[in-house]
Amino acid sequence: MAEIRLENISYVYSEGTPFEISALDDINVTIKNGSVTGIIGHTGSGKSTLVQMLNGLVKPARGKVMLDGKDIWENPKEIGKIRFRVGLVMQYPEYQLFEETIRADIAFGPKNMGLDSKEIEERVLEAADFVGLDRDLLEKSPFDLSGGQKRRAAIAGIIAMRPEVLVLDEPAAGLDPSGREMIMQSIMNYKKRTGATVVIVSHSMEDMARYCDYLIVLADGKLLMTGKKDEVFGRADELTAVGLDVPQITTMMNLLAGMGIPVNTAVYTIDDALNQIYKLL
């Protein structure tokens, strides 16, 4: 539905003061229409800034953010409309819930879009379905829900705007394995049913390997590499050189290769590893 192209993006914090830090330095990358793209990098690599540029929360110092071929900052007064098209779920989004009921909170975004009440109601229910929140939870206060439910309610608040691009910054951080699984399934559900483009920032390489098609790797504000996930994980040594993780299974395959066993190291799921090992046995 929508493609985002970043052209020569740069960003500097506290420009002109002694605290000046270059957060992003000449980034050129395309997020393909309908893809699931992962962004990898350390805290401080500039990925949070980059993510906030996708929906115009942060304006690049230099360079352009192109949404379907149009510069999103062409008309700065219309930047609000971009935020409905590119939905951003920030880190720990459950902390932004504020309404008395989950239903009202999910409706906040659609209401700001100026939709009529029938349409809003429809979208709230649809969004709740996508994230697997039971209807009877909708009347509850956000503060009576479990951690995982709150997180899903917050994501539903963005999904209810029906964004063409759904961007999530660490959507599963701090959750237990089953909570994490449910969040990732909700996102994939939305993607499958609407064909939206999805951008995920995560430290979990296992999740990245499992869900993403493309990866963007940032290091110290620069684009280190980008490409299909097997291309990126195939360069495991470059990733570990800048202190990034690779999936455990990739590390293991690299160790095997180092021991002189002929395996392909661009492997990141258990099934692929199994296939490789069967061949050798």
């Binding site: 296992e206 293991m252 258990i270 199994l274 090992i277």
Partner: peptide, 20 residues
């Protein structure tokens, strides 16, 4: 119990389930 095993452990488990 709602938990998972590390990838490597899962790989070895899978292999032994297949008879290795």
């Amino acid at each position: 119990a709602g938990l998972e095993v590390p990838q490597c452990t899962a790989l070895i488990q899978e292999l032994s389930r297949k008879g290795l």
